[in-house]
Design a protein around this nucleic acid. Structure first.
Lengths: 116, 116
DNA sequence: TGTCATGTGTCATACATAGGACACACTTAT
DNA sequence: ATAAGTGTGTCCTATGTATGACACATGACA
């Protein structure tokens, strides 16, 4: 599923329960023109900036990192972390490329639990 | 140190040993105009695209990931890896943000050695 | 002393990014 | 039936990105 159709689906789903999720009202709350949001939802234009995507994620109760990924982007805070230690993170991420989800989850958990 | 001055320093260092590392010749080998490389090395323009940075890294025997980081970028292959599993990698990277280098290195080594 | 190479200044360009403004046709509630 | 709300089409614009082309002054060198 593309970013555009995913957003449309998500918003339409909420709209079914709550009329406040019209294109116009959502657009206003996230600070863009309705016509622009409409174009975004139809893939008529490229996905918006990270800031707008974050606002959209909050508005639609979606995970910002997932939405950003669908938009072909990566959160700028993650980029900053990687850029501070480029060799370290580049090596690690490339090593993890082919690892299954559960292995990565386990690493994350171990790290959080301070097993290092 | 900035990207620009680092590049200049690196190239000048090589040039001291080998006259083939003039602005003109390096520019030609990486496929840009000499005037453009000159501007890059003086910070007169923003760092070039990822492709040019990679070519420069190879030419100057520098680590591409490090050069990209200095240029405020992250390698596109890493971005692609992250975008495929955004939640997983976002969580992991944020957890690793404050970990010391040696801990991250150890994780990378364990992963490579298949301790998972 | 003329030739050649060196770095650089100036100007221009092509395309992408990130939207805003406004009008219009259709539906829905009153 | 009329007012309000809905989605969307068209046009416009500002800024950034990523270079190229060319000329020029200086210095090395044969």
């Amino acid at each position: 599923m593309t970013f555009s159709s995913y957003i449309r689906q998500s918003r339409e789903g909420l709209k079914a329960q709550d009329r406040r999720f019209s294109v116009r009202q959502v657009a206003q709350r996230i600070g863009v023109e309705p016509a622009y949001l409409s174009k975004i939802e139809r893939g008529d234009v490229a996905p918006p900036s990270e800031g707008k995507i974050r606002a959209l994620a909050e508005e639609l109760n979606e995970d910002p990192d997932v939405l950003l990924a669908m938009a072909g982007k990566v959160s700028s805070d993650l980029l900053a972390i990687i850029r501070k230690r480029p060799k370290l993170f580049a090596e690690l991420i490339r090593d993890l490329k082919s690892m299954p989800d559960h292995a990565i989850l386990r690493i994350a958990r171990d790290v959080r639990d301070g097993d290092w």
